[in-house]
Design a protein around this nucleic acid. Structure first.
Lengths: 359, 359
DNA sequence: ATGAAAGCGCTAACAC
DNA sequence: GTGTTAGCGCTTTCAT
């Protein structure tokens, strides 16, 4: 903005001298803390208006000499490869913030159990951190937790799933609706030469996730509805249970609805599906899936999945921590929302993503 | 790695006490500066081995009390929309590093004039910065400049174009060969239904850029060569001059070679090309271009360009500055190479990229 | 309400 | 060679 060329940077001491008060008073005025007389305040503010003071953040942090802690509340990475990716983000953040003595502690809950979310949240609060990064998988339980944080004035970042009811320091994630549109367009492109219908496949999606997945479905349908020659879209819902039921349901639907393309919003769903397709000689069906899970990468490279959309969970937590750390350490303000780009992964660019440093 | 839960962080003072020497000596051992007796060194090193000391970077930087400057040497952003994007990266970096009193100064040269590169480099060196970020468009001139920097022990980051002959602090950019492969695969995908040949279009590419563009071409050709039914690829070279010549050459080549798909490695080349195609009723020809230039975005959204590949020049400079700042301020070591992912942009995800904070 | 002064952890200059 | 000490710019405490 303005030239930082002026040799000497302005210090609180300088402001004090210029306005004829002590550094203590200047500090009080700047941070609106303690008592200051109107006359003193005016003198200082006058000087502040004229010069352009930017505090030295290093000194600020050093002087206040606190060790901050940030807790991370996420699904157990051992239970799901998608959530396992978030640990990379945590590790990178740990390294990055280590020199600032930031204490980063993860707490895990079962992906399928709202109760375990409550339990993990409770454990977390037994030793209240200075800030929290949370994936609010379970709507009600998350709301209760966030309320608790609000009460204790603990700032938090919400990521992955967007719950509009709360006002976190920031939300980090993607536009799920647009993600559905993108998925649809990719599927459309890649299955142009085949005849048949498109389908969205819901595999073991918690009802609780539903906001997220519903938005994806809405986008997906919208794309095909808007097409010049509007196409119908089937929806195949598979609750879970055993592989045989899964196979029967899936193959049944494909045959019945004459499906040529499958959109699979759940990261780990693509592997299961492709296995079944292969086994049943349905390898020609186009597949668009999510995320850089090991299995997905293999399938992508071998051409069994056509596209992946990258949600970048590792970076989501990395950025969540980043915002909170900046908030705590440097009082920097964070964006209300940080929406990640919807990244298209193909066999040809997947390696470039794997090599890239948490970008 | 290891638990940061131990209430108190270890300070140099602690190490001094534990090893029975003074803080000065500990500092000397840690930084291998000044003279230390072997016995003292051993005592300190023994303690260092046992405990896990991470220096407080805030205190470190504050104590050494320097104002660092980083110079940026890039093509004039006024002359080319691609290079204009780098200014976003500079601005963001300025904001980010402002609190650390980092002085960031850009120097510009003419995109088509090696001499102006020399001139700008000379001007830059009249007031030697502590580090340099440079886009080495002109091979020989860049080599001379880098040599000068090496001599003066000024660290530098090389971005956008990879010159293997030098050893900068880091290189930032993309794998151009793989980028060509990606471009080819996208073009192949999108033009499957049409008959004809693929072509790569070279528009006003300085000979000096050639490493970069040659690699892209190599990848592009390689993709089609490896295809089960190997396809031929034409290469259309347009030196510059006026629009009419451009049009004649382009249309001539398209007709003659029966071209159905165009790969355009130069960011600003796509607009020119699409204009000519439209005008000549050749709107059906598929186009893959580069980068999020305003004009490209419009064409992408209207379906006149099928895909863009994002080189993210703004982030390239942002990261370049990031590495150098960390190097200077915190003595952090940077990666030799930071390869960006090859990002695929479509009409459906382009907005998500525009919204995204310099990601 | 305000000023003076003691840190924060590290660096660097200085004395011995 | 080694220990001591005065900063770096800010926060925080303690007198006044």
């Amino acid at each position: 903005m303005n030239d930082p060329m002026n040799k000497k940077m302005i210090r609180i001491k300088d402001i004090a001298k210029l306005s004829g008060v002590s550094v203590g008073t200047v500090d009080r005025v700047i941070h609106k803390r303690g008592k200051v007389s109107d006359t003193a305040r005016e003198k200082v503010e006058k000087v502040l208006d004229e010069i352009n003071y930017t505090p030295n953040l290093l000194a600020k942090t050093l002087g206040s000499n606190k060790v901050y802690s940030i807790a991370l509340l996420v699904p157990d990475p051992g239970q799901d490869p998608y959530w396992k990716l978030t640990m990379t983000g945590l590790d990178t953040a740990k390294q990055e913030w280590r020199p600032y003595h930031m204490d980063l502690q993860p707490y895990f809950f079962e992906l399928e159990s709202a109760q375990s979310f409550q339990y993990a949240a409770k454990e977390l609060m037994e030793n209240p951190p200075d800030a929290v990064v949370c994936a609010p998988i379970f709507l009600n339980e998350a709301l209760a937790f966030f309320e608790q944080l609000d009460q204790q004035k603990i700032p938090y970042v919400q990521f992955n799933t967007m719950i509009p009811e709360v006002k976190p320091l920031s939300f980090i994630g993607q536009d799920a609706y647009q993600s559905g549109i993108l998925g649809a367009s990719l599927l459309h492109l890649v299955s142009k030469n085949q005849t048949g219908n498109q389908a969205i496949l819901h595999i073991r999606e918690n009802v609780q996730h539903s906001v997220h997945f519903r938005e994806k479905e809405r986008g997906f349908r919208e794309y095909f509805r808007k097409l010049p020659q509007s196409q119908t879209v089937s929806s195949v819902i598979i609750e879970g249970e055993d592989m045989n039921t899964f196979e029967d349901k899936l193959i049944g639907a494909i045959k019945k609805e004459n499906i040529k393309g499958l959109y699979i919003p759940t990261s780990s769903g693509a592997t299961l599906t492709v296995d079944v397709l292969e086994k049943n000689g349905l390898g020609h069906i186009s597949v668009v899936g999510y995320d850089l899970l090991k299995e997905n990468i293999v399938l992508l490279k071998s051409g069994k999945i056509d596209f992946l959309i990258h949600q970048n969970p590792s970076r989501q937590v990395f950025r969540g921590i980043y915002h909170l750390a900046n908030h705590l350490l440097f009082k920097k303000r964070s964006p209300e929302k940080e929406l990640f780009p919807l990244e298209v992964i193909t066999a040809e660019n997947v390696d470039s993503y794997l090599e890239a440093i948490l970008h």
